[in-house]
Amino acid sequence: MRNMTFCDIFSGAGLFSAGFVDHGFEPVLAIDISKEAIASYNRNLRDVGVTASVSGFDDIPQADVLIAGPPCQGFSTLGRQDPLDVRNDLALEVPRWAKASNAEVVVVENVPPFLSSQQWRRLAVMLEGQGYEIFTWLLDAVDYGTPQLRRRAFTIASKIGRFNAPAPHHERITAGDVLAREIPVGDELHRWPQPVGIAAQRIQLIPPRGDKRDLMRLAPELCPPSWTRVGCQATDVWGRVDPDQPLNTIRCTFQNPSKGRYLHPVENRTLSLREGARIQGVPDHWMFAGRPYPVARQIGNGVPVPLARAVAGAVRDAISKTEIKVAA
């Protein structure tokens, strides 16, 4: 089988690309507006990353596959779901890149609500106008070897016919399976913000598998009035990771305990950057460029590598079968 190539737009640090590289695809271009993310891409994958806007870039190479992870903030249930978010229309750059690259297959990753948006409908119509057939997959990363509940939508635009979504694995990995693995001394990503003041007091009181509800019971003086007003909403905030379960979706703010269940199961701290990367299936030899928050963004905004690998395998198999039929 010949070497297959791909472009990655809105590439971030390359977690989506990593799955394709693992299946023998060769990246010819990765593009993202974040210089830190591109520095990470070039360090860990191939030196083909460019810091630029997708919408203002015209030097588009030929590739067998185009993959894209356009901004999801305007569609995500974890955000405002603002239909007027200017980033929403960036997804409509994909057809231009598909045409210029002459890709046989286009894979667009986003949050599930993206499939109900007007941008997705316009995207689908534009790609169909170029001769692509459109298929959609809803996949959960936990079904593909990721210790995390993370549902993602994949739009497949194909010029080689329909092909099947990757079959789920049957054995789920828990957060504890990953967090129990030893981290070598000196790993510069094994760091976290040191809690101080009221934050430190809260964390020390939260029991294993506990969360803000335990704080409200044990130390109401440490709890703002807003917690009482919201009642049973957002119960995961200031929560400890349950080691016997997959983690909930890890966000780019996973080192902030007020954003979710991101406290270590037993230690009085949030997850480290390395632990967050492991939850996303990132190999330990990867290093990320930038200060802690840009690194956390690169980790939290990426496609979990095991899920990316499963999608890439399905694409590889479909292209291979098509080439075998043509040869025959």
Rank of each mutant, 00 (worst) to 15 (best):
R297M: 08
E26R: 14
E171G: 08
R181F: 03
G260C: 10
V28A: 05
G19L: 06
E182K: 15
P147F: 01
R46I: 05
I156H: 09
V315F: 01
N102T: 11
M216Q: 15
L78Q: 15
P292C: 08
V178H: 05
A37Y: 01
K99Y: 05
E323A: 08
F20M: 14
K325I: 08
T146R: 00
E275L: 11
V111R: 03
R191P: 00
Q130P: 09
R121K: 15
M126E: 14
N248C: 04
D177Y: 08
V125L: 13
H170P: 04
V326D: 10
L138K: 13
A68C: 09
F135Y: 14
F254G: 06
H285I: 07
F57R: 07
I160D: 09
P193G: 08
D59C: 01
R291F: 08
P147G: 06
P184F: 12
T77E: 14
D82S: 11
W137S: 07
V50W: 03
L222S: 09
V86A: 15
T51P: 02
G313C: 03
L78R: 13
E133N: 13
V107N: 04
V185D: 13
S226K: 15
M126R: 15
A308K: 00
V105D: 03
V230T: 15
C72Q: 02
Q201H: 06
D242V: 07
A289R: 11
K35H: 12
P147M: 10
F6A: 03
P304R: 01
F20G: 00
V295E: 00
D187R: 10
D242M: 03
A180D: 15
D236T: 13
L92M: 05
C223P: 06
A310V: 07
